[in-house]
Design a protein around this nucleic acid. Structure first.
Lengths: 340, 340
DNA sequence: ATCAATTTTGGTAGCGCTGCCAAAATTTTC
DNA sequence: GAAAATTTTGGCAGCGCTACCAAAATTGAT
């Protein structure tokens, strides 16, 4: 094997087959081939058969680059997401990709790593493909990003949050309400000395919103947050485990801990298992996301289940159907579980 | 809000700015603008400044569709992956996307749901974008898929496996070796009555390869697999938990269980926790993947850690550098852990 | 100052397809 | 059977950009 990229045994062509070649081979005009392949306009059954035969025989694959340039609409949908480590985003992509594929669209994505500057650069790169829509996480974007999006003439969908002013469409659930309800639940259960373990809130602004409204609700109820441990970096099971260890070392009297998400909460759960802290009698644990793993633990995790996959589905559906600007609140479900 | 998609306050343009308009505004020729923006060929400092000023002022975003059609190479890399639920694939995408973004490429993806027919259709859809490369999981593809890929003139990268005949490039690790080493490890530790809990092996052919070579190794050693529980559907913690329950109900005398991956193994771990089965003295557990969560459990999971993110990185690097056809075995690492 | 070498510049022909239109073929109507 | 209505068809401009080339401007050598 040498540096030559391809040298494919049988079929060796530098340039792929073009529509003109198919037309030639089928003995029809280019327009007819185009119409048949897009199943648009009118053509005779005979023409159709001859075209299809030629397409088959030559192994023709249409060039969407050219097609897009000539027509309008790229049938590409761009996702500019903060991360792929946080299961939230694969779930979102999963929901969307099914719908997109069923509608002959393709998903393009790029990962910002929670950096608004990168987000701006990546949005620009994405817009260069003239996508049908751009999907972003949440509402916190640079002014430059927002301006570019507005000027782009593309659909813009901000997902996984509804607490903000959308550029065009927003689909998700209220992180503020989630934080508030989590607090209400813990209070209702009688917990009073409540702590928090979270990851980098500067970057994950949705987690930040949950935290803020959680604290506010506790405060209003007269039982303000006792202590918190906020670890740098992304959320992870390990971070949650260590975080709870550090928190409890400082504040041993806590009776419940709210985690920034389920990954962190599962880590906390493991800490308790390892230390023999009984849940929930000695310490209650509450998460966010409603991951599957939380249902398989010996005690099901108390958490809030968010419709992440459905967010992706609905986002994709609105985009392919060219729906009007709107905010769709898909809500969430509080899972009582057995850890709080 | 009504059905009108956009009506963006200030900037209202149906068609985005074109390069010709920038040239006009900057008082230079189109070619100059093109050269400046691609930073290719030569141009004076003065020309550069005028172009950049106009670009800035007009908010010009180049049209890559047109650029690609006129030149060669779309700077798109297509991923046709089986799933987004299995963390393996987000990890792969994560590794690749960083490298791609750093090299001005974009990732497009589609999800086959482990269906070779869908894979074929999606590969065709992807090839329509004339991507720089197509990345696929493993070697098990329809003949039609393979033929299309060979005829496409694109780079083809088959990832996450090296046990097979690549179309062009293969990067990953040996699933057969992993199965074999897992068996050797359990035997070395003295386990003799070994079972297996897995998910749908027809579809996840890489898990199937591990299973086969695991069984073969046990057989060779004279301690063939005692029993197995194979659940339909994708792998999940819940499936692993239930699977182990069913397996142990049938074969209570097992002293070790090999799981199709870490998700399943963690499920098994939870089953043991819930039933008070002590690990590893009563039952040993061994997984595959080396997920982070397995390091945070009270007893670290015994497993094989695979370089999934690095697979993505290397795949992307080879593609952007137009490396020759080759097979890259990234190997794996056996984590002794505390569960086996 | 003169001519050669070099750098910078703009015009223009496509890239492969779709959209438009008028021409050709077919069907319907009287 | 002729005229009108309808369906089917092919030619060609042009989508926005890059590649190529020749012309213009600048620099260097003598």
């Amino acid at each position: 094997m040498d540096s030559e990229p391809k040298e494919g045994g049988d079929i060796k062509r530098l340039a792929p087959i073009t529509l003109a070649e198919v037309a030639e081979a089928a003995g029809v005009g280019e327009s007819t081939v185009s119409r048949v392949l897009r199943n648009e306009g009118s053509f005779s059954r005979k023409a159709r058969d001859r075209v299809m035969e030629a397409v088959e025989r030559l192994g023709y694959v249409p060039n969407r680059i050219a097609g897009t340039l000539a027509s309008t609409g790229s049938r590409l949908v761009a996702f500019v997401i903060p991360s792929l480590s946080n299961i939230v985003f694969p779930d979102l992509l999963r929901g969307a990709s099914g719908v997109l594929e069923a509608n002959q669209h393709q998903a393009v994505f790029a990962v910002t790593d929670y950096d608004p500057g990168r987000e701006e650069a990546l949005v620009a790169a994405m817009l260069a493909w003239r996508p049908t829509a751009v999907m972003l996480a949440g509402f916190e974007h640079n002014e430059g990003t927002r301006k570019m999006l507005r000027a782009s003439g593309r659909r813009v969908v901000e997902v996984l949050d509804v607490d903000g002013e959308p550029v065009d469409i927003a689909i998700g659930f209220s992180n503020r309400a989630a934080g508030q309800e989590s607090a209400a639940f813990l209070l209702k259960r009688g917990y009073r000395r409540i702590g928090y373990v979270g990851h980098d809130l500067e970057r994950d602004t949705r987690a930040g919103k949950r935290y803020e409204s959680f604290c506010a609700a506790l405060h209003t109820a007269g039982f303000p947050l006792v202590d918190r441990q906020i670890n740098a970096g992304a959320s992870s099971v390990e971070s949650g485990r260590q975080g709870l260890g550090q928190l409890l070392a400082r504040s041993p009297g806590l009776d419940a801990v709210y985690f920034s998400n389920d990954d962190m909460a599962i880590g906390g759960y493991f800490h308790c298992l390892a230390r023999g802290i009984s849940i929930p009698s000695q310490l209650a644990i509450f998460g966010y996301n409603g991951l599957d793993i939380g249902r398989a633990t010996p005690q099901p995790l108390s958490t809030i289940r968010t419709p992440r996959v459905m967010t992706g589905q609905v986002a994709a559906e609105l985009v392919v159907s060219n729906a009007p600007s709107q905010v769709v609140d898909l809500g969430f479900e509080l899972i009582e579980g057995a850890t709080a």
